[in-house]
Write a protein that binds this DNA or RNA. Structure first.
Lengths: 232, 232
DNA sequence: GTCTATAGCCGGATAGAC
DNA sequence: GTCTATCCGGCTATAGAC
């Protein structure tokens, strides 16, 4: 699987993405004209990402959001119940969407890692927002919001444990430990997206180097060479 | 070097830390009684960390801060010029302090990595705050604030490049790429501190597994084994 | 569906008493 | 140094016209 193949299978058109968004929350959205709602929700959420990324969601005002979307305050409130709900819906939708993709993903280590990176590329602003703004959620909601993250982590652990049992991976580190190290490597792609863009590193290059880095940590069966041993 | 040794050399008493803080900004702080100022600044900044961590700095109100510190609004304003400056000073102080320690740090790869982890342990709330709240800074200030991060990154790159030249490390990945992968591994310690605490993973265990993970990526000279090759 | 106008509150910041 | 009292601007949210 490469990025192009993943896109063919999973990359939604922007309109499809927000159609799914509307359908998920349609019951609680005042506007009943589906086509208009989808269009406006896309505008509102993209503006939310833009403003949140530069100043944080908490300090973004709905006046700014109204300006940015060229909607009035009143109109905004036809699409969202209040400011907090806007944040909540974004979290919930990403969770919903990520879980759908992860549940359909293949089960080799490389493929899961690639699936995660590719997904976070396609939905980069969503991932970034959810990572940075998880504070906005209540405790209950926070638990819900990281369901798909746990799903991902469990998949990693299972595969690594299996690989170790079969002798394919060395067992120097516990599966949970390795999984814990892998995750921040993947997060970096969407958290520091601007850095990779600036350095002109493509997603394929990033995947290659990440997988190389991880594979080497997993597969070398020999003990550490002398000068790099953890020297107390 | 282990954590205990590092602490003996670098770990400041809390009062020393905030004494350094006061001295760095004394010119711009109204309160001239050094002892009182140091004490209150410690209270104010710790409260800021607490409130920011649960709700973000932007949404923390100075009234909340006054409650948490048991100071009045007026009194608060004797220590800080305004809300934004509070955030700025925290960023500037961490940068000042980190640079001091990093410049005195030894120059082996393991020691630099350990220095960074140990430092981020001692100043965990500072590191967490600066990572999460860098948005609050103006563009100029942001550049300034990451000076010490760049210092750290450059040190990594230099050492890795050297090691590759000397044949100690494999040259599968560029030094910059490896450094880019190492950094999020280290950030995880202070960003997800609660997770490691919950799992009862000590800083020494974290260092060991991180260094193991990194070393293996660097030192195995053989090419990737078949089943883990980047199978496109 | 979208707008304007406005209610009502809360935030940052300051003045001035003690 | 620390407090109370207060200004004023800007915020979320809603009512009601179009």
């Amino acid at each position: 699987m490469n990025y192009q193949q993943f896109c063919n299978k999973h990359k939604p058109k922007q309109s499809e993405l927000f159609a799914a968004f509307y359908d998920l929350f349609a019951k609680t959205i005042e506007i009943k004209n589906r086509k208009i709602a989808i269009e406006k929700l896309q505008i509102i959420i993209k503006a939310t990402f833009k403003l949140s990324a530069t100043q944080s969601f908490a300090s973004m005002t709905l006046r700014q959001l109204a300006d940015e979307t060229h909607l009035s305050m009143g109109c905004l409130y036809a699409y969202i119940k209040n400011k907090q709900q806007l944040s909540l819906y974004i979290h919930q939708f990403l969770n919903f969407y990520a879980e759908k993709v992860l549940n359909n993903s293949p089960n080799t280590l490389n493929d899961i890692i690639k699936t995660h990176i590719y997904l976070s590329e396609i939905l980069q602003p969503w991932f970034f927002f959810c990572f940075m703004e998880s504070k906005n959620l209540s405790k209950d909601m926070r638990k819900f919001a990281i369901k798909s993250e746990l799903l991902m982590e469990n998949k990693l652990v299972t595969i690594i444990a299996n690989g170790q049992k079969m002798g394919i991976y060395n067992a120097l580190l516990a599966p949970e430990t390795i999984a814990a190290h892998i995750k921040p490597l993947l997060h970096d792609w969407y958290l520091k997206r601007w850095k990779y863009r600036q350095r002109k590193i493509s997603i394929d290059e990033f995947c290659l180097s990440t997988l190389t880095f991880i594979s080497r940590g997993l597969t070398s069966p020999d003990s550490l060479t002398e000068h790099n041993k953890y020297d107390e």
